[in-house]
Computed example of a mutant assay.
Amino acid sequence: MENSYEIPNKSKDVSLKELRDRLAEFAELRGWEKYHSPRNLLLALVGEVGELSEIFQWKGEVAKGLPNWTADDKEHLEEELSDVLLYLVQLADVCGLDLGQAALTKIIKNARKYPIVNQKTKSTYN
């Protein structure tokens, strides 16, 4: 991994397993895994969510796709979203959880909890 610091091919799908493995190796090579307790990772995750929130704090509502944002603003957003994702993946890993499977299970539980009443009804999220 030490030699894999090239920007990845954006058309390649990245799995949570690949992220988990690369993060574990990254931390191990630096001797950081001893600091990656569930508590520490959660606190780091919360801090990153705060940084993500700051990006939107004073913008009001924004349109899907962020058409009025600059390339720099979008890059900053990508970086903060990535920080959140990476800490979340690490947290699940040190807790011994399969985050991908847990997410799929949660979608199924939500589908049962919120059944489709009328297929012609549009979601409030569209």
Rank of each mutant, 00 (worst) to 15 (best):
G50K: 05
Q101A: 14
K120Q: 15
N118K: 15
K74F: 01
L29Y: 02
A44D: 09
V84P: 02
N3C: 06
A24F: 09
H36T: 14
T70H: 11
L42P: 09
N110P: 01
T124M: 07
E25V: 06
L91C: 08
S37P: 04
V49H: 04
I108A: 13
E48L: 07
L66C: 03
S15C: 09
I107M: 00
A24W: 13
L16N: 02
F56Y: 05
V89F: 06
V49G: 02
Q119V: 15
D72L: 14
G50N: 05
R39V: 10
P115M: 11
S37H: 06
K10T: 11
K106V: 01
L88K: 10
V46F: 00
Q57M: 12
V117T: 14
K113S: 01
K34N: 11
G50R: 03
L41W: 07
W32D: 10
T70Q: 07
Y5N: 13
L43I: 06
A24N: 11
R112T: 00
K34M: 13
D73W: 03
E28W: 04
G50C: 00
S82A: 04
S53P: 01
S11V: 12
E78G: 10
V62H: 05
I116V: 15
Q57I: 09
P67M: 11
H76I: 14
L66Y: 08
L45V: 00
L43N: 11
E28L: 05
P67S: 10
G96K: 12
E33F: 13
R22H: 09
R22P: 02
P38R: 12
A63V: 02
V84T: 10
L86W: 00
L52H: 01
A71D: 06
N126E: 13
L81K: 10
W69Q: 08
G47H: 05
S53Y: 04
G65Y: 13
A63F: 03
W58L: 09
I108L: 05
P115L: 11
A63E: 13
L85G: 12
G31W: 07
Q90I: 02
E80Q: 07
V49S: 01
V89E: 03
